[in-house]
């Protein structure tokens, strides 16, 4: 009996946690696409990416969450900020960051959202995630990367190498 209540408590706590983080993420994401200040947009993106890391924890993907923080919140965001600074986009308010056809985006996005929510609600009505899921262990993950998915891993390393070389070639001054 008490175990059930305990499970329910965890369940409620998880749902509340999810709701708060999701709300923060959505607000942050809206800020990313609407903010008039590039740096504010980048900081809002940090919020979304951090929130995503928290959601990964709820989804028992501990290692992915840590990687998300390290790579996204750490490295990628620094890249973005450097990109902003090096292109001398003014750090203050900027006239208009939206293009002339911005309004076109609204119906497209809403249409996609409609279709997707319809499909999802229709397809997964009240499928529940398993409650007793342990965090995915790093060991299991590395087994998966280096055994069945080794080939994509190799391909990925080539992609990264190509990206590094490409970035240097593109960005160097002759």
């Amino acid at each position: 009996m008490s175990a059930v209540i305990l499970a329910d408590d965890i369940y409620v706590a998880q749902n509340i946690g999810f709701g708060i983080i999701a709300a923060v993420m959505i607000i942050g994401a809206l800020k990313v696409v609407t903010s008039k200040n590039v740096v504010h947009a980048a900081l809002a993106l940090v919020l979304v990416l951090g929130g995503a890391a928290a959601q990964y924890l709820l989804l028992a993907a501990e290692f992915v969450a840590v990687t998300q923080v390290l790579v996204y919140v750490g490295a990628v965001m620094v890249l973005f900020l450097f990109g902003v600074m090096l292109t001398r986009a003014k750090l203050g308010q900027e006239g208009d960051l939206n293009n002339k056809n911005a309004i076109l985006g609204v119906p497209v996005a809403l249409l996609m959202l409609g279709v997707m929510s319809w499909v999802l609600i229709d397809g997964f009505e009240d499928t529940r995630l398993p409650q007793d899921g342990d965090q995915v262990s790093v060991q299991a993950l590395s087994d998966s990367i280096f055994k069945p998915y080794l080939l994509p891993f190799w391909a990925l390393s080539f992609v990264l190498l190509a990206a590094v070389i490409g970035a240097i070639v593109l960005a160097r001054k002759d």
Partner: peptide, 22 residues
């Protein structure tokens, strides 16, 4: 020649395609 409009077309078409499939 505007990337954004191509994006809009792409996503719009994808959404409509998905809708049709559904």
């Amino acid at each position: 020649g505007k990337v954004n409009q191509y994006g809009a077309l792409l996503f719009g078409a994808a959404a409509i395609g998905a809708l049709v499939l559904v």
